[in-house]
Design a protein around this nucleic acid. Structure first.
Length: 484
RNA sequence: UCCUCGGUAGCUCAAUCGGCAGAGCGGCCGGCUGUUAACCGGUUGGUUGUAGGUUCAAGUCCUACCCGAGGAGCCA
């Protein structure tokens, strides 16, 4: 961008770009030492704009969009807390300032001074208020911002994820995520769960199933954690109830809208807790998270076009369906469909775990989350407590989110009998040496205990009503994506 | 790993039977005092993913490869 007459006394010349004969140096950035002084008391955040009607205020932010009407300019300004319309009439500002405004580009940073007024025509978040601009100072005139306010392809947007997060919908989703994370911590903290951080570098697979990311650990192999559960089972004997909350890693080559290679999971674990009590904890927990989002992030959910009536129904009790019942439902669903492709996808026999198509079809038939419990032992992990009198099924449960969203929680009651645990390790062909400490936990005051893992991104995807979980984390890591 | 779809201007996409590679957006120039991804006029913009092949002629047909998306499996 070249500097035009009238714009500036305060410019920074980019000497590296000044080799041409052009008399116009490149306008780069106006350092803070050159900014005009403003009264700190006047600086407000857009989210608080309604409290300042009639006052002269200062906004510090970036230009989201501009509509040029000639002698009237509409600026959509964002400051991180919201989006506000700033209206500039030529007659209200100096000729110099108006010229600056006419040349403002998308994402230019600026300080705006003006008077807040209520106006139903004003768009924004929150809308209904606008700033009648008296003065405006540019901090940096942005050049050729690549993301337009129109549809783009996902590859392009992901390549520009560092800028895409500024867009309204992404901003809304990530604010919902932050609220989900806080609600998770609040509920657990208030219900006696002690936060314990579990290791990310681990010696081997916790469950011995998923593929792990291998890393060099001073000449030996270590693996990025796929779960903190086994460590939590140690911690509960010290603290009663604990949870770990952190990133978790799966090297599966999953290529779907439900998978990331790096995702965030919260894993509560509790002593003196059986499967029924675990499901009660789960439904209270999930309901709190959803209701907190409805209460605090209604604006963002509205922006996302989320039909919140689905979420309002998310209160205890949730449905509970046994694996056997669910299987019957699936067989019936399969018989009733004329869709040959769906018929093939829903093919299942007793003993198989449910795949994604099964979960999707099941949850379409429930208007709030449903616990499926009692999965076949052979479809689940080695540490799950067998069902009393029915060793072929386990005291396990998945919580399936409605509207086709599927599994957001996976949990179980854990084996507390040392003899049974040893037997299971043998059956699963797991090396006893690696699990000595874990076996130890069953030797010193073993009690019934249970826990589950909740996937943060899947939960946010469901609450926001998105069709892909990649937008629920600032910088997603996927099979084909580690940049930026 | 398997199946399906795709790759054309900075971005989003057209291009009929194989016959001059186009539009909108963005950028640039001009106009407009209530716009909501403003609108109107003008203008700028191309190694059609890569390498071969068929043909008078290839964005279009054939072969191989690269990259991406969706789905399966696996899972939260």
């Amino acid at each position: 961008m070249t500097v035009r007459d009238g714009i500036r006394v305060r410019v920074y010349a980019d000497l590296t770009g000044a080799t041409s004969l052009a008399p116009c140096p490149v306008l780069r950035y106006n350092p803070p030492s050159t900014w005009r002084r403003v009264d700190m008391a006047q600086i407000i955040r857009i989210q608080d704009v309604a409290q300042h009607v009639g006052e002269q205020v200062v906004l510090q932010g970036w230009l989201y969009n501009r509509t040029d009407k000639g002698k009237l300019q509409f600026l959509q300004v964002r400051d991180g807390t919201g989006f506000a319309q700033c209206v500039v009439f030529q007659k209200d500002v100096s000729p110099e300032v108006f010229k600056v405004v006419q040349e403002l580009t998308q994402e230019s940073s600026m300080v705006v001074t003006g008077t807040v007024r209520q106006d139903d025509r004003a768009p924004g978040i929150p809308g209904g208020y606008e700033i009648g601009v008296a003065d405006l100072e540019v901090i940096q005139l942005a050049q050729d911002y690549p993301i337009q306010l129109k549809e783009h392809g996902i590859e392009f947007l992901m390549d520009h994820r560092h800028l895409w997060v500024r867009s309204q919908l992404q901003w809304a989703v990530l604010r919902v995520r932050a609220t989900v994370v806080r609600a998770i911590r609040d509920w657990l903290d208030q219900h006696g769960f002690v936060n314990m951080d579990t290791p990310i570098l681990t010696p081997a697979a916790c469950e011995g199933t998923s593929t792990l990311f291998e890393t060099d650990y001073f000449g030996e192999s270590a693996y990025l954690a796929q779960s903190g559960q086994l460590y939590n089972e140690a911690n509960i004997y010290a603290f009663g109830r604990v949870y770990c909350f952190g990133p978790t890693f799966r090297a599966e080559k999953s290529k779907t809208r439900r998978h990331l290679t790096e995702f965030w999971m919260v894993e509560p674990e509790a002593t003196f807790c059986d499967l029924d009590q675990l499901m009660e904890i789960g439904e209270q927990f999930i309901s709190y998270i959803v209701q907190t989002c409805l209460r605090e992030r209604g604006q963002e959910l509205a922006l996302l076009g989320r039909d919140t009536s689905h979420l309002e129904r998310v209160v205890p009790p949730f449905y509970r369906v046994s694996y056997d019942q669910a299987l019957e439902m699936l067989v019936e669903i399969r018989e009733q469909t004329d869709d040959e492709e769906l018929k093939a996808l829903l093919q299942i026999e007793w003993g198989d775990d449910f795949g994604s198509p099964h979960e999707t079809e099941l949850t379409k038939r429930f208007d709030k989350p449903v616990f499926v419990y009692g999965y076949p032992t052979r479809a689940k992990a080695f540490y799950m407590e067998p069902w009393p009198g029915r060793p072929e099924i386990s005291k396990s449960t998945d919580l399936l989110a409605p509207e086709g969203y599927g599994e957001i929680i996976g949990g179980s009651e854990r084996i507390s009998d040392p003899e049974l645990l040893l037997q299971r390790l043998k059956e699963w062909n797991l090396p006893r040496e690696a699990f000595e400490w874990y076996i130890d936990l069953r030797q010193y005051g073993s009690v019934p205990h249970s826990g589950f893992g909740l996937g943060v991104e899947r939960t946010v995807t469901w609450i926001c009503g998105l069709d892909h979980l990649r937008e629920t984390i600032a910088f997603p890591r996927m099979l084909k994506r580690v940049y930026p």
